[in-house]
Design a protein around this nucleic acid. Structure first.
Lengths: 336, 336
DNA sequence: GTGAAAGCGCTAACAC
DNA sequence: GTGTTAGCGCTTTCAC
């Protein structure tokens, strides 16, 4: 039989109220004699407070939910880690949900998290979500969206990165290196970041007076396989290019592999730039030039914002667009 | 104000017991007229059942905890994904905890998970854990250890892979390719898997009558940086080798990078084998020969086992050692 | 088929 | 400083 606060109270010959106070550190008014006695008993019998029961009365579970497409996608572990670190620091616990970019799964998780009475939700909407669902709309707890904003989500708080600018900087860098025919292998164009990176790419070309190629945009999925296949096809179809700006690092790594297997010299014949700066970007050779996304920070700051909302503080900022940075490594310049 | 089961009962002019039954599908004995009325009201007012309150009485939270060293380490996302998939399928929710290989953090999480009344825990012990802590010992809910077993954990159920055999197979493969001086760059030798892989490595050499080099074992951490540095040092110190068996893929990828930057031809001059078969192993060129760890399956099966224990079924097996498989790719053979 | 009522383990207001 | 007590929202037994 589980030992409860009543057992401790009985054994220590105090009331449950007293035990509750010492367990929760609200023991300024408890004499140190009783405090110590209570603590000794707790230790002796191995009492574990039931936070579920506390939650019943406090209306706080000290739990937050994180909904992402897929933790196995290298973009998300760091984000998740950032969230968990802040959560842990603030005494919160993290429920992890993988939506697989599936709207129904997303909605099911949103409902479930609310049933479990989480105090708030951090949410990376799937790339296919274009508008607010009814599940999302009836949420009455704080929600922060990360990386991808959702049109029409009322009183929305969000953490995003400046994708347009990041892409602009990356492509400008490529142009300055001297690459002339730069294509863009992107992720699914339904996703906001993909759209934004694409506009940044276009703006960079424009501002350098370069007219984009007819076939400049090749859109697919955010995977290494896609990057590999896209480049293979380019080569098969004999489409010319001397630079590729990729929608993310996975695509770029796949592209790099395809370039290598076709004996195309990177960076001398073709320049290659990714996006995200995942761990692996530095583990290939040549190392991948990419746009550093502050993934960990996004998670951490989102959690920070969420916790402050949970505590009832209106966050100073509703919208934080974190800065990206082009990290020049071995797949660009050294040039030509 | 939150709407509760009482509100629904009042609005539908039934008792809370009836509402409870329809919400939980125990409505065989409820007339379809009332059932539908109740469901309509629930829908109309947007009632969300409070599972915390149910948990109070059912003593079930339908939540499991997962403690791993670090979700940002590429080994764990797949494992976590496997756990979450099974959990979700069975109606469980996953709490994610990163221990950073820190025993205190681990113990704190163990306590916390119990306070939150999770129904069970899946646990990858940190590489520094050599014995059962008191926190771990007073756990009264099902625990499954994954990947790393813990000496002395009573009534332990575990999922591990056969590390010794995996290493044996990998090194045998290298020998058969013709590599003669094969070194082992390992992770921390305090960790069980590291020890087991090392014995597999030794056994393979022995069984092929090869005497290990004086400097054959170079142990460090499970990171790409370590692999890179280890190889650099080997080269600086002018230690000869024509094969490296690495403790994991990260180390191998780092090693590959160092080999490339020193213009050492892989696989013709040096053969290289990793361990784990992380996603990135196929994204480098040449693609990495490695030992496939069924990470996803480990997570999935661990969760399966855990759920069956939660349901009170003694699992048929207490100990499941999953098979590994050598995946021959571009960093070995093609030989010499 | 449906409802009344007890109680899960805890906190917080208030009394003493 | 410490105790009494009324719930928190739900499930479940048992009676009708």
């Amino acid at each position: 039989m589980k030992v409860t606060i009543k057992d401790i109270a009985r054994l220590a010959e105090v009331s449950t109220a007293t035990v509750s106070k010492v367990v929760n550190g609200k023991d300024q008014k408890i004499s140190s004699a009783t405090r110590e006695r209570v603590m000794r008993i707790i230790e002796e019998v191995g009492y574990v407070p039931n936070r579920i029961a506390s939650s019943m009365v406090t209306k706080r579970t000290k739990t937050i939910g994180l909904i992402i497409p897929d933790i196995a996608n290298p973009f998300f572990p760091e984000l998740a880690r950032g969230v968990e670190d802040l959560a842990n620091k603030e005494g919160y616990t993290l429920i992890l949900c993988n939506s697989d970019n599936n709207l129904e799964k997303e909605d099911a998780y949103i409902d479930m998290l609310q049933e479990k009475m989480v105090d708030g939700i951090i949410f990376t909407a799937s790339s296919s979500r274009t508008e607010v669902s009814s599940a999302l709309n009836k949420v009455r707890i704080p929600v922060i969206t990360v990386d991808r904003d959702i049109d029409g989500l009322k009183s929305q708080k969000q953490i995003v990165v400046n994708n347009e600018e990041g892409a602009f900087d990356a492509v400008s860098h490529m142009i300055e290196c001297g690459y002339k025919k730069i294509l863009h292998i992107s992720g699914p164009m339904t996703s906001k970041p993909a759209q934004q990176r694409y506009s940044g790419y276009l703006r960079a070309l424009e501002s350098h007076k370069i007219k984009p190629d007819t076939n400049h945009l090749i859109s697919g999925t955010y995977t290494g396989e896609w990057g590999f296949n896209a480049v293979q096809e380019l080569i098969t179809k004999d489409i010319k290019f001397d630079g590729i700006f990729c929608g993310n690092d996975l695509i770029a790594l796949g592209a790099l592999k395809a370039l290598h297997s076709n004996n195309i010299d990177v960076p001398h014949k073709v320049g290659l730039v990714g996006y995200d700066d995942i761990y692996m970007a530095q583990m290939v050779s040549p190392e991948l030039t990419t746009v550093k996304q502050p993934n960990y920070e996004m998670g951490y700051q989102a959690a920070e914002m969420l916790v402050s909302m949970i505590h009832g503080e209106e966050p100073k900022i509703n919208f934080e667009a974190l800065k990206t940075r082009v990290v020049v490594r071995g797949t660009t310049c050294t040039k030509k």
